[in-house]
Simulated assay, not measured.
Amino acid sequence: MGYKIFKFEHSEGAEIVAAENAKDAINFYFNNYQDDSQIDDIVEYDGIEIEELQGEDIKKKHEIHNEETGKSEEVSYRELAERFYKGEPEILVMPRY
């Protein structure tokens, strides 16, 4: 397993990111996923909690909406990472709005 799985939790939900290490995950998340105004809001209002998920947290199955099929599926974060992580940081799950 050449990746780690990180949870970025904030007031609007949580994104799950697979990356080689925390620095790569954080840089990817803030540079490619959040714009300046979103980052300002995160800092000003309620912050963000970042944690590495391990063990049962990555093995537990969750009902996750698959945007490609338009259906929900029972899958673990580890299964998603094995399917989608290709050596570059990747968002595995994001909140549905």
Rank of each mutant, 00 (worst) to 15 (best):
M1K: 09
M1I: 09
M1L: 04
M1T: 13
M1F: 07
M1W: 12
G2S: 11
G2M: 10
G2Q: 15
K4Y: 10
K4H: 10
K7N: 05
K7F: 02
F8K: 06
F8P: 05
E9T: 15
E9N: 12
H10I: 06
H10V: 09
G13T: 01
G13M: 01
G13N: 01
G13F: 06
A14M: 03
A14R: 07
E15C: 03
E15A: 01
I16G: 00
I16T: 01
A18M: 05
A18F: 12
A18D: 04
E20Q: 15
N21T: 10
A22V: 12
A22N: 07
K23Q: 14
K23A: 15
D24M: 10
A25P: 10
I26P: 02
N27W: 05
F28L: 02
F28P: 02
F28C: 00
F28K: 08
Y29H: 08
F30E: 04
F30H: 02
N31E: 13
N31Y: 14
N32T: 13
Y33P: 00
Y33Q: 08
Q34E: 12
D35H: 12
D35Q: 10
D36R: 08
D36S: 14
S37F: 15
S37N: 11
S37L: 11
Q38Y: 08
Q38N: 10
Q38T: 03
I39W: 00
I39S: 05
D40Q: 10
D40W: 09
D41E: 13
V43I: 14
V43T: 05
V43C: 09
E44H: 07
E44A: 00
E44Q: 10
D46H: 03
D46I: 05
G47Y: 09
G47K: 08
E49R: 02
E49H: 06
I50M: 11
I50L: 15
I50H: 14
E52K: 14
E52L: 12
E52T: 15
L53E: 12
L53N: 01
L53T: 09
E56Q: 02
E56N: 02
D57G: 12
D57P: 00
D57N: 09
I58P: 12
K59M: 07
K60Q: 13
K60S: 13
K61E: 15
K61S: 05
K61C: 05
H62T: 03
H62V: 01
E63C: 06
E63D: 10
I64A: 07
I64W: 07
I64S: 01
I64H: 01
H65V: 11
H65D: 00
N66K: 01
E67H: 01
E67M: 06
E68I: 12
E68M: 10
T69D: 11
T69C: 07
G70C: 14
K71C: 04
K71L: 14
S72A: 08
E73T: 11
V75K: 12
R78H: 11
R78E: 15
E79H: 09
E79G: 07
E79N: 03
L80T: 08
A81W: 07
F84Y: 14
Y85V: 03
G87N: 04
G87V: 14
E88Q: 12
P89F: 04
P89G: 06
E90D: 01
E90I: 11
E90T: 15
E90Q: 06
L92F: 03
V93C: 06
M94N: 03
M94W: 15
P95Y: 03
P95A: 08
P95I: 02
R96M: 03
Y97H: 09
